[in-house]
């Protein structure tokens, strides 16, 4: 049995399982922290830095998805500084590749778009980069547009940890990082891919998607919960 710890989040006293991360505990207690690369049910990355919070007594900010709760911890989820940082994170992601919502399959169902609205990222202070990655339409059911990828690695983690296949990974580093199938094969020729579709279901943007269907028809959230229920079945089985 794991221990229970008590902490406060925005002044609200909550009890949590030791070892759980702040974001998960906050959500369980209906306290909202914006987040992007986080996906419940798979390991946390701590990459997007949208879910940063402050902890009283420390001058630093912490990605709540990878910071474990601790006894007596006082978490602050909203401040001028946090809002400023979160805005930068979204702004930089929007500027990193050509995100053009009006022609994107995820328009209206995109977590990046939604966070931009929510955090008030109504313009970009930095130049946009117009990448020109080739669209991968080789798979019979799915498509991959690297130009819309935000490198959250949800697809990589779900493929590895839930499907158990690890057909997806990153290549190159830094600003040149790219999500690839197998050893940078075209998706349709990636032998280890089982075509389960979990990656496109968890993609927060329009980088991985089901061909021929706008996302308004394939509600992503429902698919995510479907994936997760399968995961718990697996765990129980």
């Amino acid at each position: 049995m794991s221990k229970t710890v008590e902490l406060t989040i925005d002044g609200k006293k909550v009890a949590a399982k030791e070892g759980d991360n702040i974001l998960k505990v906050a959500r369980e207690n209906n306290i909202y922290i914006p987040a992007l690369c986080y996906l419940e049910g798979v390991s946390s990355l701590g990459g997007c830095r949208v879910c940063v919070v402050e902890i009283r007594g420390s001058p630093k900010v912490f990605a709540s998805c990878v910071t474990p709760v601790a006894e007596g911890m006082e978490v602050i989820t909203d401040s001028e500084r946090l809002r400023r940082y979160r805005k930068w994170a979204i702004e930089l992601l929007l500027a990193e590749r050509p995100h053009v919502c009006s022609v994107c399959v995820a328009n209206g169902n995109c977590e990046l778009q939604q966070l931009a609205t929510e955090l008030g990222v109504d313009h970009l202070r930095v130049d946009r980069k117009w990448t020109n990655y080739e669209l991968d339409l080789t798979h019979e059911r799915f498509a991959y547009d690297p130009n819309r990828c935000i490198l959250c690695t949800r697809c990589i983690r779900v493929c590895d940890e839930v499907e158990g296949v690890h057909a997806i990974d990153l290549m190159l580093r830094g600003k040149n990082s790219k999500v690839i199938f197998d050893l940078d094969d075209k998706w349709g020729f990636a032998e280890s891919c089982t075509s389960c579709g979990k990656c496109s279901a968890v993609c927060p943007v329009g980088a991985l998607y089901v061909k021929g269907k706008p996302l308004s028809e394939v509600k992503k959230k429902e698919l995510v919960s479907f994936v997760m229920s399968r995961r718990s079945e697996k765990t129980i089985g």
Binding site: H99, S102, L119
Partner: peptide, 8 residues
């Protein structure tokens, strides 16, 4: 503008 606009 927070919460009022939508890209796309």
């Amino acid at each position: 503008l927070e919460g009022r606009f939508k890209y796309g």
